[in-house]
Amino acid sequence: MKIEHLNFKYKKGDRLVFDNLSFNLVQGKIHILLGRNGGGKSTLLDVLSGLLRVDAVILNPIPKNEILYQIQGVPILSTIKGKHLAELILCASGQYKSRDLSPEMCSELFNDHREWEKITYLWDQQYGKMSPGERRWLTIMLYCMLDKSLYLFDEPTAGVDPYSGMQIARFIRRLQEKKGKTVVYATHKIQDLNGFKDYRVLVLDEGKIVVNEDGQHWLQACKKEKGPFCKRIVALWENSSSNLI
């Protein structure tokens, strides 16, 4: 999928959200989209999903039924249990049957017994009684069980503790490693990069993709940029003591 010459501003806004933005998605790669709050990350995901109509040139667009789009903070009925949420997400996709659902079916995603205990506990827990981090962990785990071509994640680790954040990153990484799926992962947290091995970094700043490089070269590319956001990213990354996977 390739986007060329994307210019966009909201009808009621004066600010140009995208200014002649161009980039392409590499099939089978995880794309970490870094950008500041309000910088247009979610809007760019809306463009990629085809929900927002723009006058840019979009080559090889992916049909909506082949996309999975994780959205921040969608309210769900508080009285439903984890298993009901699993039924809603997995069965609504048409890829699972209600009678096949159980915590065991998620076991292939897990590395240790703590994750197994967590899903068993959340399976019968009411959604309203789960912490925001638990809700997000469960929801993203369920999303990662669905079979689509393109996965769009909008701040998947917001409000999640670092340990659960690493688990979420592992679920997403598995989509690429085991299934060769294309992922776009929007975040403003540079430490999220620690959860991935084979990825590309896209830095969205001032309405443009100013950096579009793989995991080995993105830092050098970022250092060449003069914008304050790139400088801040570089400083944060270099000061981070735990940037190893």
Binding site: K64, Y69, I71, G73, V74, P75, G94, L146
Partner: peptide, 17 residues
């Protein structure tokens, strides 16, 4: 407005369902 529609448009793959 709660973005539920947007989320399930992609999960189910169609607005008809």
């Amino acid at each position: 407005e709660e973005q539920f529609l947007k989320m399930f448009l992609f999960i189910s793959g169609s607005v008809r369902s």
